[in-house]
Nucleic acid binder design. Structure first.
Length: 723
DNA sequence: GGTAGCACCAAAAGC
DNA sequence: TGGTGCTACC
């Protein structure tokens, strides 16, 4: 029937979601159940079959990557190369509205978007202004509390009203100051990109009508990651009975600490009373064994609507759990196993190694390097966070908008130009006294209270910026950037021949080429500058990451949305996952979901590992197995104990420790159970590490003091049990 | 004004 | 253990 051949491409549940009529629907999409397929096909269906104006459709995601993927998939589906619907992140959507209508809520034109580093700087400044010290009020904590308040759409006043404790009251003070400084810098933060559009929609009836009028269908991806403000934005846009398709999976909500509220999914009908709720339970990614193992785990969570994933791909191999002596032993096993899989035909890029914390990657990286195994560490230091890049961005912002205090201060003496700490302090008090911004102070040029030397340096700096402002109006962006480096002599900072300098020079070069894409030849740089800065603010490094570069090593958080045929999850220990900071039941549930997300990344095989002890913050610590291991059906897991557990004097303690848990999948094979001591006529005494199969045909892995690990078939090995 | 060395801290990270 | 931000010193 349809040009899109929906019936041929979709299963029944997907088809129902795609062809849903008017009104709200919630699609509970299990891991690997084809949720992107549903969203893209629904967009296609609305346009192609329902004749909806593409421009009246908006799809919101959380990451640029997801947005790009979604957009290109719809384009392929509709055989077009420029989709007219709007597909983008929440924040990009918000920013677009603010750039268009921001003046209606007193936003200055050309405002900047502050990222988290700027935010921290702003919090530190607020603390200073309020006379509070960073020791008792850690900026990071303060910021996350402020962000938390903002993501619940609280104003400083509303927040202050609810403040009772001493700390809360100080927090309210900092919050108020923070907002004030933000405004004075004519900047907005990420929370504002959601919160201010809500205000716009609520307070300005006319603009609200215009925005709503242009929007007929709204699709939201990863709904379990939305916070209160985002839910509110969505509701203001489309209304409680509107055409929203929200797709999400409460079992994959791992951003509670960032303000995400699972209730948005769990109690969806409260926000959208007539919503139709559908479940996608057929999985197209993993084996049934992997689904049952992860399903067994997640079933222990209370806060869920419940799903049971199934596949027609067959059972597949059991999971393997390796119990290592320490993280080095663990890393060796992971890498050895990975290399073995590669030797058997897997490609490096088909292997994903997932861990809870960044610190865990160290041992793994060392082992990967040692064995010359190709790998990519996903995440890590971000390009736009590097000092040299931040400096350049600060220049661009300060030139674009001299009121941006934070940026102005950053470049004031970078590279050094005679405006040192002392001068800066003098200038700051002077600004304060006269009630001027730094830039106004420079322009007014009343430097009487300053030493002549400083005054000269300040004038030189002001003239430099003014010259650059002129350049910006006359030159296209790229030429302007060259001019910027020229006039400031910035690269002089990295003139050296050492590796560090070279790297930084390269980064600057990379930044220039990234800027190439913005603005044509003829334009004045000013227009494209805003675009470039918006882009930088909204883009992260993870976006540029490609899979083809070897084994992927990353945290569980960054693994979300990815899949690998072969997956390792390391550090299944109490304190690692669940992390020791997770104390409340809700935190534990989130940790469980995190492991669930990791496990469900696997297509064919899943390997788990844990350590008996681990170096934490530089010292050894005894580790207990993660309680989550008990929640995975034991019949689906083969357990191996590290041979190194049975070496030397550690043998006893280790054996007792692990003796508690028997390898679950093996039927009793008489005396030859895992852990039992045996004697071989030639190889001498040993310990059974694992048993696969049963009876005479069972394959044993035995560790012999004389010969190391050996694989034997019970029938032929002639083993004698000893004790 | 620049920098070496030391104290301090260590969960995750999207936009 | 390693990375980072600040102080003390040159």
């Amino acid at each position: 029937m349809s040009a899109l051949d929906l019936e041929g491409r979709l299963n029944e549940a997907q088809l129902a979601a795609v062809t849903h009529g008017e009104g709200p629907q919630l699609v509970l999409a299990g891991a690997g159940s084809g949720k992107t397929r549903v969203i893209t096909h629904r967009i296609g269906w609305l346009i192609e079959e329902m004749g909806v104006d593409p421009r009246a459709i908006t799809a919101m995601t959380f990451t640029n990557k997801a947005a790009r993927e979604m957009e290109s998939r719809v384009e392929t589906l509709l055989r077009t190369d420029r989709l007219e619907s709007s597909v983008g992140t929440f924040h990009r959507f918000g920013l677009k509205l603010l750039r268009r209508f921001g003046e209606r809520i007193e936003l200055k034109r050309g405002f900047t978007v502050f990222d988290d580093t700027d935010q921290i700087a702003l919090v530190k400044r607020s603390l200073k202004d309020e006379g509070l010290d960073e020791g008792s009020f850690p900026p990071r904590t303060m910021l996350s509390r402020i962000s938390d308040a903002k993501s619940r759409l609280l104003t400083p006043a509303a927040h202050a009203a609810g403040a009772e404790t001493f700390f809360e009251k100080r927090l309210a003070q900092v919050f108020r100051r923070y907002e004030h400084l933000l405004q004075r810098s004519s900047a907005v933060d990420f929370d504002d990109l959601i919160g201010l559009p809500v205000r716009l929609l609520v307070e300005d009836a006319e603009i609200g009508r215009r925005i709503r009028g242009g929007l007929r269908h709204l699709l939201v991806d990863e709904f379990q990651d939305t916070n209160h403000a985002q839910l509110r934005l969505v509701r203001e846009l489309i209304g409680p009975g509107g055409n929203i398709t929200a797709v999400g999976d409460e079992d994959q909500g791992i951003y509670r600490w960032r303000g995400a509220d699972l209730a948005n999914v769990l109690e969806f009908e409260k926000s959208f009373p007539d919503a139709v709720v559908r479940k996608l339970e057929q999985n197209y990614r993993s084996t049934q064994t992997i689904l049952d193992a992860s399903g067994g785990l997640i079933a222990h969570n209370e806060g869920r609507r419940g799903k049971r994933l199934w596949t027609d791909r067959g059972a597949g191999d059991p999971l393997e759990l390796f119990r290592a002596r320490d993280e080095i032993d663990e890393a060796r096993w992971v890498v050895r196993t990975a290399r073995q899989l590669e030797a058997e035909g897997a490609r490096w890029s088909e292997i994903g190694v997932l861990v809870r914390t960044n610190a865990q990657t160290r041992a793994l990286e060392e082992e990967l390097l040692r064995t010359e195994t190709p790998y990519t560490l996903v995440g890590g230091t971000r390009f736009y966070q590097r000092a040299e890049i931040r400096d350049l961005v600060a220049y661009l912002r300060a030139i674009g908008d001299p009121r941006d205090q934070i940026s102005m201060e950053r470049i004031l003496n970078q590279p050094p130009r005679g405006i040192g700490r002392k001068t800066q302090r003098l200038v700051a008090t002077e600004c304060e006294r006269q009630g001027l911004t730094l830039w106004d102070f420079l322009v007014v040029d009343q430097f009487e209270s300053l030493p002549e030397r400083s005054a000269k340096a300040l004038r030189r700096f002001r003239d430099l910026l003014q010259a650059l402002q002129g350049d910006l109006d006359q030159l296209p962006l790229v030429a302007f950037l060259d001019q910027l480096l020229e006039r400031t002599g910035y690269l002089g900072l990295f003139a050296g021949d050492d590796e560090d300098s070279r790297g930084r020079r390269e980064n600057v070069g990379e930044f220039l080429s990234a800027a190439q894409g913005f603005g044509g030849e003829s334009e004045s740089g000013r227009v494209s500058l805003t675009e470039l800065l918006d882009h930088i603010a909204l883009v992260s490094d993870l976006d540029g990451w490609k899979v083809e570069r070897g084994v992927s090593l990353m945290t569980l958080h960054s693994a979300k949305g990815l899949e690998f045929p072969l997956v390792f999850v390391g550090g299944l220990e109490e304190g690692v996952i669940p992390h020791y900071n997770a104390k409340e039941p809700a935190d534990i549930e989130e940790e469980r979901r995190l492991l669930y997300v990791g496990m469900t990344r696997a297509e064919r095989r899943l390997f788990l590992s844990s350590c008996l002890r681990r170096r934490v913050a530089g010292r050894f610590q005894d580790q207990r197995p993660s309680p989550f291991l008990d929640e995975i059906p034991s019949s689906l897991v083969i357990v191996h104990d590290s041979p190194s557990l049975f070496e030397g004097e550690r043998t006893r303690g280790a054996a007792t420790f692990f003796g508690r848990q028997q390898a679950p999948s093996e039927p009793e094979s008489g005396k030859l159970a895992k852990g039992s001591r045996v004697r071989h006529p030639k190889l001498g005494d040993g310990v059974v590490l694992s048993v696969e199969g049963y009876g005479d045909g069972a394959k044993l892995t035995v560790f012999f003091a004389s010969a190391g690990k050996r694989k034997l078939v019970a029938k032929f090995a002639n083993l004698e049990s000893i004790s």
